[in-house]
Simulated assay, not measured.
Amino acid sequence: MTKPDDDLEYEKHGGFPVFEPADPGPGFGPFLASMRQLQDLAVSADPDGDTWVEAAARVDELVKLLAPFEAAEGVGPANRVPALPGAGSLLMPPYHVTQFDSDGVTLTVQFSRFHVGGNSAVHGGVLPLMFDSTFGMVIHATGRPISRTGFLHVDYRKVTPIDTPLTVRGWVREAQGRKCFVNAELRDPDGALLAEANGLMIRLLPGQP
């Protein structure tokens, strides 16, 4: 990011900490990929009762393995590895950034069984999450300081499919002092508009969380 010449508060980021990218080592990427597969199976598998008991026991073992290493926000690598899908966060759909500059951001994303709301369509509540994250990236890409979401409005134009490579694009529509109005859209491989969003991002004041 570059500091805007007229923004004397840029470096303060309100009271929000500045998280640096993480380098967790070669095992974290495969771990995330396996966890995404596990999420898909957790909502789609239909084994017998004994298999569920065994699966629960194996998950308990994984919890016991990782529990001693629980860390504070910004210390663990989740959401701090830009090279990994979803920046290394299981909360986010596995997106990849293809454009990140003053004109805005473009992402590719593919939703899976874990994100289904019904009838093989992506749950409507997942799309605001994707758009909100896109808005945050737009703020960074366009050189504005840390901001919080003031509002986010989504219009659903078509059913969003799973297992299909989609494109998300976000850009600044207008900026007024602390306020930044952002737009975003989600399109399928043929360019059809699936959903679009508009929102308000508000720059944090010094000390504001």
Rank of each mutant, 00 (worst) to 15 (best):
V97M: 08
T98F: 04
T98V: 10
T98G: 02
T98E: 10
Q99D: 15
Q99A: 15
F100E: 05
S102V: 15
D103A: 14
G104S: 07
T106V: 04
T106L: 03
T106W: 02
L107H: 03
L107C: 07
V109C: 10
V109R: 07
Q110S: 11
S112D: 05
R113S: 08
R113W: 01
F114S: 04
G117N: 11
G118V: 13
G118M: 08
G118P: 06
S120Q: 14
A121N: 06
A121E: 06
V122M: 02
V122P: 01
V122C: 08
V122H: 02
H123Q: 15
G124D: 15
G124V: 12
G124A: 15
G125F: 04
L127S: 04
L127P: 00
L127G: 00
L129R: 05
L129D: 07
M130K: 07
F131P: 03
D132V: 07
D132N: 02
D132Q: 09
T134G: 03
T134P: 11
T134N: 05
G136Q: 05
G136S: 14
G136N: 15
I139W: 04
I139S: 13
P145H: 06
I146S: 13
I146A: 12
R148Q: 13
R148T: 11
R148D: 03
R148C: 01
T149V: 07
T149F: 09
G150Y: 08
V154H: 09
D155W: 07
Y156V: 03
R157P: 01
P161S: 15
P161Y: 14
P161A: 12
I162A: 01
D163Q: 03
D163I: 06
T164Q: 14
P165M: 09
L166M: 12
R169G: 00
G170R: 03
W171N: 01
W171Q: 01
V172P: 01
